[in-house]
């Protein structure tokens, strides 16, 4: 289980980005979280990926209470959650070749010897040509870089996957390809997926269950199109 209870989180205590959000995800389940831009989706995704310590509330991962750590969640829990970010340009170290980008988590966790084989396997899985692996981020397109970032997220075989607007910058065919990669991986390993986005059509087709931001943030005034100019596009009728 990945469980977030009554999460309040943000970058400034007076104006938290997320207030009182609840969310739970069973292994093998996929949840699409919809919400207007600026509502706090990405912050919640960071909390779910154990990258951001909430100011209030509890995060439970596979029975371990994650909150209460002083600075960072322990490595074994962090690596249990794979993350893909919205902007591959920012999520890739500009100095690393794609090969090293994908292999980096293996090296960081002391599994250097497997690196070459795993990188080749994942490159094939995400559809990244072998010639691209020797290039650096500025020498490939956004779509190709996002494929590499997805490969990096899968390289440690995480039991959970958090995709924060993974496809927002991509064209339709790359989107379809990457969603298929994620779904294949889930079917193989039974991993749970939290997909955050603002495209209801995509998320409803992709995920078994979708939730709107208003449904997970209880006891708060709902975010409506009146309060948010962009809200009307993503609120379901």
């Amino acid at each position: 289980m990945l469980e977030l209870k009554d999460i309040t989180a943000g970058y400034d205590r007076r104006t938290p980005a997320v207030r009182g959000a609840h969310l739970s995800l069973r292994p093998g389940e996929s949840l699409g979280l919809l919400g207007p831009s600026g509502c706090g989706k990405s912050t919640l995704a960071r909390v779910a990926a154990l990258l951001h310590r909430p100011d209030r509330g509890t995060v439970t991962l596979d029975g371990h209470a994650v909150t209460g750590f002083s600075h960072r969640a322990p490595r074994s829990l962090r690596t249990a959650v794979g993350v893909v970010f919205q902007q591959p340009r920012l999520a890739a170290d500009p100095r690393l070749r794609l090969r090293d980008l994908v292999a980096e988590p293996l090296r960081a966790t002391g599994r250097r010897s497997e690196a070459a084989a795993r990188v080749a396997e994942l490159a094939q899985r995400v559809g990244l040509g072998a010639d691209l692996l020797a290039r650096r981020p500025h020498e490939v397109s956004d779509g190709q870089l996002q494929r590499a970032c997805l490969a990096r997220a899968l390289v440690l075989c995480p039991r959970w996957l958090v995709c924060d607007e993974m496809t927002a910058m991509l064209d339709a065919s790359t989107t379809a390809a990457l969603v298929a990669v994620v779904e294949d991986y889930r079917a193989e390993t039974g991993a749970g997926l939290l997909a955050v986005g603002h495209d209801p059509v995509l998320l409803e087709r992709w995920c078994g269950r979708t939730a709107h931001w208003n449904e997970i943030v209880k006891d708060r005034p709902p975010v409506t199109d009146r309060q948010h100019p962009y809200g009307g596009h993503v609120l379901r009728p």
Partner: peptide
């Protein structure tokens, strides 16, 4: 504050590894 540091942390990198691999070369 860049996302690639987040990605490295998520990939199991220690503080030392983040510093040596990503911050110092930068």
């Amino acid at each position: 504050g860049r996302p690639y540091v987040d990605a490295a942390v998520s990939g199991g990198a220690s503080r030392w590894r983040v510093a040596v691999r990503h911050l110092v070369p930068g």
